[in-house]
Amino acid sequence: MKFKSKQTERMYTVLFMAIVTVVFIAVTSGIYLYTRDKIITNKTLFIKKAVLFAANIDVGDSAKDIEETYKKSIKEIRDADGKLKYMEVYAGGNGKLTGYAVIVTGPGLWGEIEAVLGFDRDLKKMTGIDFIKQNETPGLGARISEKWFREQFRDRMGPFKLVPEGTAKGGNEIDAITGASITSNAVLDIVNRTISNVREIVK
């Protein structure tokens, strides 16, 4: 483009950038606002489903199912500031306390791992584990999200120890994931640490 002077060229450049920026921010913000509720719902649904899995309560995949079951069987206990301390589990459907669930975090290989751990009423056994957040290597460490790995912790109590994949014989042995020792160890640390201090969290 031809300009009358350097001044107008500069003005045009600044103005152009400003307009383009405003237009694109408007478009992305619009799409963000449009999908925001859906994204938040997805996130809470995912957490609720994880809590239910850790509490060993069967639930379908539909949003309605998860919401209803969660409402019926999980009671969130918060401290004075509204921060989640732990959750009480009422699995039987008869209003009797059957266990607890806690959300804990720990370092993984690439980032934080956030997990829900479920325990029975006497804190003597785990009812299960599920992961809310993990950025482990897809195909390797991310396999902690596979069902067989999570199922291993059901109805058992640690401290656990890792053995090579496919060789766990029950008791306190947990199958590690081959090729992902750091992630396996990170999960084990989180679980064992939580087992040792769960009595202080659930009071």
Binding site: E9, M17, F24, T28, I31
Partner: peptide, 29 residues
């Protein structure tokens, strides 16, 4: 303006990438 073309390109590309990210989060979480 050719002087700021890279800024403009980055802005445009980033906007589309953010859209992809938001849409994936909303529809295939």
């Amino acid at each position: 303006p050719s002087r700021i073309r890279m800024m403009v390109e980055t802005l445009i590309i980033a906007a589309y990438v953010i859209i992809v990210d938001i849409v994936l989060k909303a529809y295939v979480p």
